[in-house]
């Protein structure tokens, strides 16, 4: 029996009196796409932030590929293969798209105490960056990240995550704020990536969730109240009461 890729046990995060994550257990298997759904304020983004290392939990443990990373700083987790795309696009606005992704490539290519060679002309950085941009459908677009559309910035986020050559993608609402057409395109994109990466997907777009997820976990008030295939979860009475019914 192999250990899951990501193993979360008893994870707890409090903000003052508010509990964002409440003794949560969660596994993501190798190659699995797990969708995390739940109403607003259920603690989804807090969970992603704790997994990525942006937030420190109050209790519990996180193990990645059998290695305890509960106290590891964010940059080390990134090197281990945890890549996060942010709910609100987080890019380098003054850099071109290629330069944005090249930073991600550079991060995976050892330390950056290299002072002489022009990074923008370094094929070892630019090549993989262009490849990642191609794979999300942004190939050939040489503009500043500040100047592209919202949908394109979401795609850029994904390209940056892919350029880290991750083992687990933490995708925080990759379709947030997108129109129907862009969402459908992003869904197809992620379907193509499913074969190559394990994913933890937080998403409100149910069409996307049901199209992508191998397994769905429903998070309410920081606790997992149900887990199963999309169909199982859809028909779970507790879920319908707590979540789907409200929509």
């Amino acid at each position: 029996m192999t250990a899951p890729l990501l193993r979360v046990r008893g994870l707890t995060k409090r903000f003052g009196g508010l509990i964002a994550t409440n003794h949560l257990d969660l596994d993501v298997g190798h190659g699995e796409t797990l969708a995390l759904i739940g109403p607003n304020g259920a603690g989804k983004t807090s969970l992603i932030a704790q997994l990525q290392g942006d937030l420190t939990p109050n209790g519990g443990s996180i193990a990645f590929d059998g290695r305890d990373i509960t106290g590891a700083p964010a940059h080390r987790r990134a090197r281990l293969g945890l890549a996060r795309s942010f709910q609100i696009s987080s890019v380098f606005p003054e850099f071109t798209l290629t330069a944005n992704v090249a930073v991600a490539v550079q991060a995976g290519a050892g330390h950056s105490f290299r002072f002489w060679r022009d990074a923008a002309a370094d094929p070892a950085l630019v090549g993989p960056a262009r490849q990642a941009l191609d794979s999300v459908g942004l190939g050939g677009l040489e503009r500043r990240a500040a100047d592209v559309s919202h949908g394109e910035r979401r795609q850029l986020e994904l390209a940056m995550a892919l350029a880290m050559r991750p083992r687990l993608l933490l995708l925080d609402e990759p379709m947030a704020g997108m129109g129907r057409e862009d969402s459908a395109r992003m869904t197809r994109l992620l379907q193509g990536l499913k074969r190559s990466y394990a994913m933890l997907l937080v998403e409100h777009d149910m069409n996307a969730v049901f199209a992508l997820a191998d397994r769905v976990v429903v998070l309410v008030a920081g606790q997992a109240i149900a887990s199963g295939t999309a169909d199982e979860v859809r028909n779970d009475p507790a879920v319908r009461a707590a979540y789907l019914g409200k929509r």
Partner: peptide, 24 residues
Amino acid sequence: ASRFGVVLRASAQNERRLTALGIP
């Protein structure tokens, strides 16, 4: 223009992103 310079300029724009990419 070097890799070092890229990191420095990136840190001025978005430190959180840089960390999340794996560069402290």
